[in-house]
Amino acid sequence: MAMNGTITTWFKDKGFGFIKDENGDNRYFHVIKVANPDLIKKDAAVTFEPTTNNKGLSAYAVKVVPL
């Protein structure tokens, strides 16, 4: 089920960042999981599918909501 969130941290040079989800949890995401990576920036609103990996909470099918 899709969730909403906000990008809180973005490491462009490393290709990953973190999203604060609607429950207040931080989720890892990688640029290859983003549909529109050219719009990635700190504080951008996103929708995504929540999941977990071996390191904890993460996100896939991430879409940055255009302003």
Rank of each mutant, 00 (worst) to 15 (best):
M1S: 15
L57K: 09
K41I: 08
W10E: 01
N53W: 10
N23L: 09
G56T: 07
T51L: 11
R27Q: 01
M3T: 05
W10N: 00
T51Q: 11
K14W: 11
L67V: 13
D25R: 08
T52V: 13
N26M: 15
P50W: 03
K42H: 08
K20F: 11
D25F: 09
V34L: 04
G56Q: 08
M1L: 13
V65Q: 11
M1N: 12
D13A: 11
F11N: 08
I19K: 00
F18V: 06
V62Q: 01
T51D: 10
G15Q: 08
N54K: 14
K20C: 11
N23F: 11
T8L: 10
D25Y: 08
V64A: 04
K14R: 13
F16Q: 02
V31F: 09
M1Q: 12
N26F: 15
G56W: 09
F18N: 04
Y28K: 03
A61H: 13
D21E: 00
D13K: 11
L39M: 13
N53L: 08
N23V: 07
A2R: 15
V62N: 01
I40Y: 05
L57R: 06
A59W: 02
R27H: 04
F29L: 03
D21S: 03
V65G: 07
H30I: 07
G24H: 04
E49K: 15
D13W: 10
A35V: 15
A59I: 03
A44F: 05
G15I: 02
I40F: 04
K14T: 04
T9K: 14
V46Q: 00
V64M: 04
P37D: 03
F48M: 02
Y60N: 15
P66T: 13
N36Q: 06
G56R: 12
F11D: 07
G56V: 07
F48I: 02
T51I: 13
T52Q: 14
D13F: 09
A2K: 14
F48C: 02
P66Y: 10
P50I: 05
P50C: 04
N36C: 07
T52L: 10
Y28E: 03
F18P: 00
H30A: 08
N36M: 04
K41L: 07
P37Y: 05
F18H: 04
Y28S: 05
V46I: 05
D13I: 08
T47I: 12
N23G: 04
L39D: 10
V62P: 01
P50H: 04
D43T: 07
G24T: 03
K41H: 11
K41E: 11
P37F: 05
H30E: 13
I7Q: 00
V31A: 09
D43H: 14
Y60F: 13
L57A: 06
T9Y: 14
E22P: 03
K55Q: 11
I32D: 15
A45C: 11
A59S: 06
F16K: 02
I40S: 02
R27M: 02
T51R: 13
A61V: 06
K42Q: 09
T8M: 10
V65T: 10
S58R: 05
E22N: 07
Y28M: 05
V46S: 02
G24K: 05
S58K: 04
T8H: 09
N23A: 08
